[in-house]
Design a binder for these strands. Structure first.
Length: 249
DNA sequence: TGGAATGTTGGAAC
DNA sequence: CGTTCCAACATTCC
């Protein structure tokens, strides 16, 4: 469920719930005072990267689905919901296995929308500055850095690095600026393709590298390794993906 | 069927 | 005190 485009789909799906008033809130979240929600009207929904927000007057609820989180709209699963919102017209939203948090600070103060790959306010220039400020950082880590590419996840990382032919262990400082700009552009571009294909239920069909064993360009075996600070799966081709690795200071 | 996976956090360890 | 490491969380699929 997690990467940015999936959260955008959720946001679109719940749009009809804007303006509805909560009749009853339930769920097994311990971090939320559910009694506060009854009688409150949803003023809208927002997303930042992999975060989803239900906005009320004066506060919002942040939901992060982590690896396993799911949701149901006007349906429910047999397992207990983390957060369950029943509205005055009988409709309902249910969220499972996610992190839920009550936020009182304005979202504009907490989040830099220019960092969100899916947001119209995303700034390629800002992203470039952030990449250039961390010459020692590995490409595979940069692609997962939510301060730089909010919403990018492991699938997007593998697909983008393959598409732009950059080896995941490349150092940012050794990558030509033009290539960094390509990384940024393709992260945005692929994220929207991800969104399109996910809606069509054809996302996996379009993977070129993620979970793949053979490079479609060179017909040689992909390397599979757990790389970077977070040791996440990387699928890459040592023939066509360039390792930029000159020393940097 | 045990292990791994679209992820992040917080606290321990160093 | 800053950085790094790792358990914890919790679901589904192969």
């Amino acid at each position: 469920m997690p990467e940015g485009p999936s959260i955008v789909i959720l946001k679109e799906q719940v749009e009809p719930f804007a303006g509805k008033t909560v009749a009853e809130a339930g769920g097994n979240s311990k971090k939320l005072d559910l009694d506060l929600l009854a009688g409150k009207t949803v003023i809208g929904f927002k997303s930042f990267g992999k975060n989803f927000f239900i906005c009320f007057t004066g506060f919002s609820i942040r939901i992060h689905f982590m690896l396993f989180g799911t949701y149901r709209i006007n349906q429910h699963k047999d397992t207990p919901a983390r957060l369950s919102l029943h509205f005055d017209d009988g409709s309902e939203l249910n969220f499972y296995a996610c992190v839920v948090q009550h936020i009182t600070q304005p979202l504009d103060e907490l989040y830099n929308w220019a960092a969100d790959v899916m947001n119209p306010a995303f700034s390629a220039a800002e992203a470039l500055k952030k990449l250039q400020a961390k010459p020692q950082m590995l490409a595979c880590d940069a692609m997962l850095d939510q301060q730089i590419f909010a919403g990018s996840g492991n699938i997007i990382k593998n697909e983008v690095l393959f598409r732009i032919r950059v080896h995941p262990l490349s150092r940012l400082g050794a990558i030509p600026q033009q290539k960094l700009e390509e990384m940024i552009a393709e992260t945005v571009n692929y994220s929207f393709e991800f969104l399109h294909w996910k809606k069509e239920f054809t996302l996996k069909k379009h993977w070129l590298a993620h979970t793949k064993t053979i490079c479609p360009r060179d017909d040689v075996p992909f390397k599979k390794a757990h790389l970077g600070k977070t040791n996440r799966r990387s699928f890459f081709c040592e023939v066509c993906q360039v390792l930029y690795s000159s020393s940097v200071h």
